[in-house]
């Protein structure tokens, strides 16, 4: 993939994440902060489908943005064909693993499996 496309995704995910995380933080204001962290209330978030979908979107946006950012930092740190391939594929793998693990958590909590 061309670097310009990757960077467009990078900027897009940043904007998306800022918007959705803002919604996520504002949702804490619907109740007292300490209440929002109580087990029942946290689980209730996952049972509310639109909110669970938003959390999934936040997870994807932050994983893509974060691991691409890390890839860029590591590419600037050291150069070399093998190293760069390793970093590129490693970032994609780490991104996929984190999304899979996070999605599993959202899905299990949503379905009431603990």
């Amino acid at each position: 993939m061309r670097e310009s496309i990757i960077m467009k995704i990078h900027y897009g995910t940043a904007l998306g994440a800022v918007a959705l995380v803002a919604v996520h933080i504002l949702m804490r204001m619907t109740q007292n902060f300490d209440q929002s962290l109580q087990y029942e209330n946290v689980i209730a978030n996952y049972h509310f489908l639109p909110y669970a979908l938003m959390l999934e979107a936040v997870l994807i946006l932050l994983s893509v943005h974060g691991f691409n950012g890390l890839r860029v930092i590591l590419l600037e740190l050291k150069q070399g064909s093998t190293y760069e391939k390793m970093i590129n594929y490693g970032s994609i793998a780490a991104m996929a693993i984190l999304i899979a693990y996070g999605s599993r958590t959202i899905l299990m909590a949503g379905m009431g499996i603990s």
Partner: peptide
């Protein structure tokens, strides 16, 4: 200039 060591760095 559109590569991993190009303009975006």
């Amino acid at each position: 200039v559109d590569n991993s060591h190009g303009i975006w760095r």
